[in-house]
Design a protein around this nucleic acid. Sequence first.
DNA 1: ATTAGCACTCTCACGTGCCGATTGCTAACA
DNA 2: TGTTAGCAATCGGCACGTGAGAGTGCTAAT
Lengths: 363, 363
Amino acid sequence: MPKKNAARPKDGTRTEPVLDERKTSILGTVVYEYLATGEPVGSATLTQKYNLGISPATVRAELASLDQEGYLDQPHTSAGRVPSDLGYRYYIDHLMLPETLTQEERERIHAEVRRASHQLDAVIDHASHVLSNLTRSIAFAITPRLRSQVFRHLELIRVAARATHAVLVTNLGLAAQLTIESKQEVDDEQLLRAAQNINRQFADRPLAGIGLDDLTSLTRDTPLPDDLVRAIAGMLAENSEADVERRLFAGGAHNLLDQPEFRDLRTLRAILDLLEEQQTLYTLLRNTLQAPGPTVAIGRELPSADMSECSVVTVPYRIGNRNAGAVGILGPRRMQYARLIALLDCMAEGLNELFQGETRRDA
Amino acid sequence: MPKKNAARPKDGTRTEPVLDERKTSILGTVVYEYLATGEPVGSATLTQKYNLGISPATVRAELASLDQEGYLDQPHTSAGRVPSDLGYRYYIDHLMLPETLTQEERERIHAEVRRASHQLDAVIDHASHVLSNLTRSIAFAITPRLRSQVFRHLELIRVAARATHAVLVTNLGLAAQLTIESKQEVDDEQLLRAAQNINRQFADRPLAGIGLDDLTSLTRDTPLPDDLVRAIAGMLAENSEADVERRLFAGGAHNLLDQPEFRDLRTLRAILDLLEEQQTLYTLLRNTLQAPGPTVAIGRELPSADMSECSVVTVPYRIGNRNAGAVGILGPRRMQYARLIALLDCMAEGLNELFQGETRRDA
DNA sequence: ATTAGCACTCTCACGTGCCGATTGCTAACA
DNA sequence: TGTTAGCAATCGGCACGTGAGAGTGCTAAT
């Protein structure tokens, strides 16, 4: 048998193509069939529904081999085979045909994205809802990093002698909020003058270009406490220690109830916990933010053991040329990867266009 | 038998006390026992565990009577009795003993409320999380009405020729956002001057006292389009047509998975839908906002048929002397009403104190 | 190397029968 | 007349057994 392991380089590939042609074909068919039906696939089904040119017995031998190599799993002795994490991985990296949406679908998604276009939170929220309905999975998204936005206004509010509330408004209308505790006391007058200075100096400047130097020089004549200035700078630069976390939107849990994978209440509960806790999903999106395109994580590839029955597909969106945020979906491992990737890509593209417009208007 | 239907007036009472003493006693015992065990209550249990002074046969007769009058239900022929909506209602209105929390519990709750005290959204979010864990139910809450807060700053951002984004900052740090479409075009200069005027005029004024008159007189010399001014006024006055909806925080769905009532996936799904949709819960809280104390709605008393297996307890919280928002919990009808009411009361009290402090500081 | 045949294994659905819990009824009783 | 004891009847739930169906792995033949 000729081994056609063409070493086509591919982004995000984690497995080398090491299976011979026949194994490849059988693995691909098993995954395809299982994605379609949800039933474990046996040798009979394979030979009857697909023209493989070999007998069930041979298929069985190959299945046993793929099983042993870790690409397939067997729910129980007398059941067919089901793809393992590795099997899905191989399928996605080497076998899957990219799906293209119809023009109508693309336009509908783009139209949906534009609908709530004037409010940033609403855009991201709406996008995740649309995705959730479209994919019948959990969809989640984070708002753009501040550094991809343009400074508009900073409001400093004294909430207590040593506590200041900072509200940041950008070109996209986002109001990032942060409460800062300072060691020294501040009064309204100080805050007002500092805010005036900051606003005058930074008006319409991209946040990416504002550093601590700018701030300290600015507030030299309005002596705010050092730690307060540093916190404000941290907020603008979106440092991780300043916990100005971008908001995470997640929804669509009810879609999971349809999936047989979640009949088990324990896994369902784990996923609901995950949604409430937010941190895990947030980190997940943040980590894939620098990826050039869609990222897929399958089962135990995911950071939490609670998600071992799930897969996550994420894709970043851009503002201008800068990756700014990301959207993703969380569903059972048995998901229509090709279609979901296409949908997510389309959604990201819609967001890109939307934000492209926003920045152009400001440039 | 003497009928001691003392007509004690009570807030929120919807049923008259019409049952004789023995029926009352039996109904109360059934509810009490069912709340404790979750098992349908039969005549044997009642006579053995509680000293009623009558025989099982007599109890059976009374149970049958209460059943026929609608206070009790029977899951199936050979099962004990379970309280109906009406039964719970009667219990809550006439039989339930108010529960008082221990000093330690009260202080822990108050401490929790104060923990995230400097950011309004965080306060409400945190409160609902605490409640959710404490009650092992779904907890939800809405942020305070604008009219109970004090104007701090209004920022007007031009997002398109005919679209303006308004960000309102109050003494509590809340940034209400609203995108306004106007018929005429506006430019940055107009918006800037209008915002300056508004901010100068309204600084530190209670939002409750700001009306359309104030606004129109203000913007007379900075001619913004009429509809834009009206929209801003609507935003400040929090008119319903300006959909500056206060945010709803809801969480704790995973708690429901423990409850046997939600083993049925359909009802679970309905509740998850409800949480995502938000409008129903929002309206629920809004409608009970003017109540003087806790409000209980049981099963079919609730506005949605999907909640027929649930009960909701809500309680408003105040800023100063004004009802400003509300917190609530949603759980199975079989809930520890007395305890939950005490917890909610305590939580509301904590919020009251917190906000009382906020306003005093501003006054 | 491939294939047909076959025995084996395992799950699932279904039917059965029994147990326990509870009721409503009736007749006796205070 | 209200209360009680006794009793037959009803029903849900559980354990058990059984049989069908699906699919495998092995072996021997091609």
